[in-house]
């Protein structure tokens, strides 16, 4: 893939769901390109197709029509194990409800995706510890999700998303369950991942303040691309929230 090529390209993507015998079109011929190394926020009213688009890009769902090309791969053509392997290599997910496995410690949760790599056990452990240190949880490695705050849980989820060093991070309402101050800390962390590690981030959000942390804001409306806003000066973490991080 040439540097100038978009890392994510959607061409005439259509996706509909059947509910109660009725067909509900969600994405209707969506065309979109996203640059590598940028931080995108994806906004739109409920039912506009934000999460559906995120799932298609992440290979969690398949389009009814059109092409989904991510990191040079036609994701829409991949199936089964091939798709799983691709996901493990290229995409990291961050969910609104954190989705950590409750029976595992923070470190074990972060180690999970590393089990799909050829790393040895000690290498996996070291890598997981590095990722947790990066998100500021070096002192919470052996804690279980139930022993962590919401913000800490989301940090663990972010550490898990970056553990395998994927090029793309897909975040679905990552701050939706957090208070404002904690949300800012998470957004700041995502900004740093984007700027310092060069990760391409696509974040679905309802929150205009959260969207201000991104470089660009994509607006979806009824399954179609509305407009793309450029934040020339993305918002930064407030002094108050930064002080909390310590």
């Amino acid at each position: 893939m040439a540097d100038s090529d978009p890392i994510i390209r959607l061409r005439h993507v259509e996706r509909s769901y059947t509910r109660g015998g009725e067909i509900l079109p969600v994405l209707q011929g969506l065309d979109l390109e996203m640059e590598a190394g940028a931080f995108y926020a994806l906004m739109g009213p409920s039912g506009s197709g934000k999460t559906t688009m995120l799932n298609l890009i992440g290979g969690l769902d398949s389009p009814d029509a059109g092409e989904v090309i991510v990191a040079g791969e036609h994701v829409d053509l991949l199936r089964g194990a091939e798709l799983s392997h691709w996901r493990a290599e290229h995409v990291g997910f961050v969910f609104q409800g954190f989705n950590l496995l409750p029976v595992l410690t923070a470190r074990e949760n972060v180690e999970l995706p590393l089990q799909l790599t050829p790393l040895s056990r000690s290498q996996r452990r070291a890598q997981a510890e590095r990722a947790l240190t990066l998100v500021g949880l070096a002192d919470r490695m052996t804690h279980r999700p139930a022993q962590l705050s919401g913000g800490q849980e989301q940090r663990v989820a972010i550490a898990r998303a970056i553990a395998t060093d994927p090029s793309i991070i897909l975040a679905d309402e990552p701050t939706g369950d957090l208070d404002r101050r904690t949300a800012e800390q998470i957004l700041d962390l995502m900004q740093r991942l984007n700027r310092e590690l060069g990760k391409t981030i696509l974040m679905v959000t309802h929150d205009p303040v959260a969207a201000e942390f991104a470089d660009r804001v994509i607006h979806l409306d009824k399954g179609r691309l509305g407009r793309i806003d450029h934040n020339h000066e993305p918002r930064r973490i407030s002094a108050e929230a930064a002080a909390d991080v310590g």
């Binding site: 493990a88 290599e89 999970l112």
Partner: peptide, 11 residues
């Protein structure tokens, strides 16, 4: 679902 999203196969 999380495991599958992380790349764990159906197998």
């Amino acid at each position: 679902g999380v495991l599958k999203a992380l790349g764990f196969t159906d197998r």
